[in-house]
Simulated assay, not measured.
Amino acid sequence: MGCKIAITGMGIISSIGNNVEENFVSLQTRKHGISEIENIDTNLVGKIKTGEIKLSNQELVNKLCLSEDNNITRTTLLGMIAAKEAVDNASIKDINEYKTGLISSTSVAGMDVTEKYFYTYEDFPEMQKYISSHDAGNSSLDIADFLQLKGMVATISTACSSAANAIMMGAKLIKSGTLDRVIVGGTDALSKFTLNGFNSLMILTDSYNTPFDNGRKGLNLGEAAGFLVLESEEVVKKENKKVLAYLSGYGNANDAHHQTASSDNGQGAFLAMEKALEISGLQKEDIDYINVHGTATPNNDLSEGRALLRIFGENKVPEFSSTKAFTGHTLAAAAGIEAVYSILSLQHNMIFPNLNFKTKMEEFDLTPVTEMKQKELRHVLSNSFGFGGNCSTLLFSKA
């Protein structure tokens, strides 16, 4: 097997829990977080459901003990919570003791606030402090400042594969010797921009999303943040650190097919999975479970299913499920929170259920795991495929 990267900490906030333990309990008990919109003033209220975190921005500020005089927007607040949990989980006392960086990802950035005042900032001078919070890079810098991190900070925004690419970049920085430790992941808040944008694409369902079901109608958008702490094996040995799991493989590819649609044969997904296996040194038969991208859109699930069949062969696809029926599709945060779920699967030898599934897709013979299942797991694949054809796969292995 190729060089592995140790995962020593993880943190998460989503619609099914404000930390790792709450998320794990919800996954075990089939408690989803898809609900009516409460925090956003939109004409889509009552028409669609989302994976909304039922905490206001002020409640998040209070939770983080931030000064009232701040310009921190929701995406960053969520990222701070998850990144801080990951650092604490890794038992890091001095974050700058080793060469440490932060690779964060987002697509929404500060839009949840700036979209409200874009045309009228001159009328609301007290809101002008949020202008600098609009861009994606600002959220990463604020998270780094909150963690008191003085090292490298970078931001990735590749739509729904963003956090996977952040995790991948962190691993490469450790392998190259550039850094010893990297906090990696993604964060995205719900906003009117994304709600209206996905609605215009006609890929939102008016009910609950049903991944890999023949009657699937579209996705539920969600908001979340998920971060991991990656460390070199040298640091792990020196500090005698507990390892949660290893990042043993990763792959990124682009199917160059369409701005928002996946290719019919899943070329990008196929290449990403193939590369992750190659880097890990594992064989396809070694994969015990796949946390699929599984957005419940007609195009994505068909494309991903075909890619799975191309990689593994007919009647040989490992057991798989999509956890997006729990949380909704959290965009740039998706691969971050699903990395946490993949590690929880490895730690507890559990496959979390693909909720809402009823009927197998007519195009192929693939059925996700629909009930909580205990199974010895050694290696888990996690897929994340973004707009623009940017496809990424992570491969996690048991510590």
Rank of each mutant, 00 (worst) to 15 (best):
E68G: 15
T73F: 00
R74W: 13
L77W: 14
L77K: 07
G79K: 00
G79W: 05
M80H: 02
A83N: 03
K84F: 01
K84M: 11
A86W: 01
V87H: 01
D94V: 13
N96Y: 01
N96V: 07
E97K: 15
T100V: 06
G101F: 12
V108R: 00
A109K: 14
M111V: 11
V113D: 01
V113F: 05
V113K: 08
T114G: 02
P125W: 07
Q128S: 12
S133M: 07
G137C: 08
S140E: 07
L141K: 09
I143A: 09
I143L: 09
I143Y: 04
L149E: 06
L149P: 01
K150I: 01
G151V: 01
M152A: 10
M152S: 13
A159S: 08
C160F: 03
S161T: 06
S162I: 05
A163S: 15
I167H: 00
M169N: 10
A171W: 06
A171G: 13
T178K: 13
V182A: 03
V182R: 00
G185W: 12
G185M: 06
T187Y: 00
L190K: 10
S191Q: 14
K192Q: 06
K192W: 00
T194V: 08
G197H: 10
F198Y: 14
F198T: 09
